[in-house]
Structure formats: C-alpha cells, structure tokens
C-alpha cells in the first residue's frame, strides 16, 4: 500500500510533509511525511525517546513544528491549533479520569469542556453507558472501578464529542490481555463509525491490530505499511521481529 495513493483531500484526516521539531541541536522529530485516511486505525510505533510524544504534541496543536507542514482535520497545526482542538479527542495512558467524580459526572465534565449542548450530552451519556454495559455504574465513583473499566470509560469520554480523529497515547498500559482485547474491540467499533484512530504503543502484538503502522527510530520514519506487508517485506513472523530489525541501529536509547 502506498501512502501517496490517498490524494483526495476529503479522505485524509492527517497529512504531514517534512514535519520536523528541533530542541536546540537535538532533532526530536526528523522530517516525517505520512497520510492517515479517514476511519483508519493508524499505529505509531517506537521506543521511548523515538519522538512519538513530540510528534503527537505537534499533531494535537500543543507544540509548533520547527519546519514542515501538518494538517489535522483539515487545519494547519502551526496556525489553526484552536480549530484542531475542537475536532480531536485525546486519551493518555494515565486515563485522566477524576476519581472523586461519578461516572456520569466525568462524562458531563468533558462534554461541558467541549461546549456540547445539554440535550446531546444527556443522549451521549446514555449511549455510552449502554455501549459499555455501564448502565448500573452511572452513579459509581470512578475510584471504585476496575482498571479495565476505567480504560474503556476514558476512551469513550475522549470521543464523547464525536471528534474526527482520536489520539490514543499508549492507551493500554497496565491492563491485562483480556481487557486489552475488549479495548481493541471498542477501537474497531469507533473506526467503523468513521472516526480516525491514531494510536501510539510499544506493545508490538497490539500493532498487529492496526490498519497501518508507522515505525519511528531516532525521530525518523523507518517503515510505514500494513502489518502484513511489513512482515512480508522483512520476512518476519511478527511485528516485534520487524521492529527489532529496524531499531537495531538506533542512536538513542
């Protein structure tokens, strides 16, 4: 699959051209170019310090690129960060839920932050509770939920305002494999509704679930394709092996 095949602007959620971020002499993100299709599950892989976080920060409009272009949801990250923020969702590995708020209060808080209308908020809260099977947990304090449930709740809240793209930064840390599988089912359901999922992870088995993956080593893209094609190209059994092959010459640890 060739990334330049998606030329139609309307089909593209994220497009970068030579995106670069330097801190002094250190180049955290080095001239990366890629496209992410609408409704695609796009995996962003790399060791710690490979530049994943810096790249995600630029795409979310938190950090301005040193050079290059990034268009997210049709807006330029360098000049239209405010528009981007309205059209994206974000979930971090810390889940960012408030323990001392009830399940529905957490949902309402974030819905309120995104300026949603009251009627839509009520509708969305019920919809999410049903989808997660949380009907009886509406008034439960988040601190009493098991971690797998918190994870699903955090994800659902990150898309409560039905954004065009959701960024998941290492979303499955500290969760057992069964809960992780359930979580990926939720991601698939979301992508099917047309929401683009941009996910970073260092679990290589998880990368197999993505439509396409982009591997980052020392701030540079070293591979970008579907998991199957990558395995074929490098004649490896799994993505972990592919990554080991590519990351062998890394300078940063």
């Amino acid at each position: 699959m060739n990334s330049t095949a998606y030329n139609y602007q309307n089909d593209i959620s994220i497009r970068t051209e030579g995106l670069t971020k330097r801190f002094g002499n250190f180049t955290a993100v080095d001239n990366i170019t890629f496209h992410v299709k609408k409704g695609e599950i796009f995996g962003f892989l790399g060791a710690n310090g490979a530049g994943k976080t810096t790249a995600i920060k630029m795409l979310c409009g938190l950090s301005k690129p040193t050079s290059g272009i990034a268009m997210v949801a049709g807006y330029d990250v360098a000049t239209q960060a405010e528009h981007i923020k309205k059209n994206i969702g974000y979930m971090s590995q810390k889940f960012a839920l408030y323990d001392d708020l009830k399940v529905w209060e957490n949902m309402r808080l974030y819905a309120g932050i995104y300026g949603m209308k009251e009627k839509i908020i009520a509708y969305r809260i019920n919809e999410i509770l049903m989808q997660l099977g949380f009907e009886n947990e509406k008034n439960t304090f988040v601190k009493t939920l098991p971690i797998g449930w918190k994870q699903k709740l955090a994800f659902s809240i990150s898309i409560i305002h039905q954004p065009e793209i959701v960024f998941l930064d290492e979303p499955t840390g500290g969760v057992d494999p069964a809960a992780r599988r359930q979580f990926w089912e939720l991601i698939y359901a979301t992508a099917e509704k047309g929401i683009t999922v941009f996910v970073t992870t260092h679990y290589m088995d998880e990368a197999e679930y993505c439509n396409r993956i982009c591997m980052l080593v020392d701030g540079k893209i070293v591979a970008l394709d579907s998991p199957k094609k990558l395995k074929d190209t490098f004649s490896a059994q799994n993505i972990d092996k592919v990554f080991r092959l590519l990351a062998r010459n890394t300078n940063r640890t």
């Binding site: 923020k85 974000y90 979930m91 971090s92 810390k94 932050i113 300026g115």
Partner: peptide, 13 residues
C-alpha cells in the same frame, strides 16, 4: 499527576 492536564491542554479550553 493524574494526567488530566494533558487532556485539558488538548481540549479547546
């Protein structure tokens, strides 16, 4: 500490 700040900064707030 609980990572909420990241999410808030990515929000339109």
């Amino acid at each position: 500490e609980f990572g909420n700040m990241e999410v808030l900064l990515v929000s339109p707030l």
